[in-house]
């Protein structure tokens, strides 16, 4: 029982101090691996791989995996709830304050500056996702041949999906994801 409590405490602290999204939790998990013998760094590598290849936010997937490997299903639930509890508390407080100061000129002007910055951040994340999905950066850097850079199959699928989604933009993103997953399997991406 005390082990379970300690695990919840560690995940609560991770949720409280990991700022900047799911990947920010990785250093905390590494520290847990070193500090306690809950899992090894090798296990953690597997956990990250699985978290990235299953649906859902990566941070949530990892806390579930760690809790699950230690205390089964209940452990997974408790670890994840501990991880998200600080978010719920902090965000509710901020949301309440924002509601109160919604019409303040200062708050409004600050958000006018934040919005374009977030678009820039999303673009930066997008460029990385694009490079990973549509290009063979590793292959290109070793061979130096520009022809090796393009993942032709992926680029063709990308253009088709893009055109299809522009044309039928009422369609739900879920269908685009399902089509692309089956294409990936059928054509061996």
């Amino acid at each position: 029982m005390s082990g379970l409590l300690l695990m919840c405490y560690e995940f609560f602290m991770t949720g409280l101090f990991a700022i900047g999204g799911g990947l920010a939790t990785i250093p905390f998990l590494k520290e847990m691996a070193v500090k306690y013998n809950w899992f090894t760094l090798n296990d953690l590598t597997t956990m990250i791989a699985v978290s990235e290849s299953t649906p859902g936010p990566i941070g949530v997937n990892m806390s579930t995996y760690v809790g699950n490997s230690m205390y089964g299903f209940i452990g997974g639930i408790l670890a994840t709830l501990s991880l998200v509890a600080p978010s719920i508390i902090v965000i509710c407080i901020i949301a309440k304050m924002l509601k109160k100061f919604k019409d303040s000129k200062i708050v409004k002007s600050v958000f006018e500056g934040l919005r374009p910055a977030v678009v820039g951040l999303v673009l930066s994340a997008m460029v990385s996702i694009f490079a990973g999905a549509l290009l063979y950066v590793d292959k290109y850097t070793t061979s130096g041949n520009l022809m090796d850079l393009w993942n032709i199959k992926a680029i063709i699928l990308f253009v088709c999906l893009l055109v299809f989604y522009q044309w039928k933009n009422k369609i739900h993103p879920i269908f685009i994801i399902l089509i692309a997953a089956s294409m990936g399997v059928v054509f061996g991406f």
Binding site: S53, I129, G132, M183, G184
Partner: peptide, 21 residues
């Protein structure tokens, strides 16, 4: 199978993100 499906999904995420951004 998982790796192939994921590669495909990543391409889908790219296409969807273009619209989103």
């Amino acid at each position: 199978v998982v790796q192939h499906a994921l590669q495909g999904i990543q391409v889908a995420v790219c296409a969807l993100m273009v619209n989103a951004i």
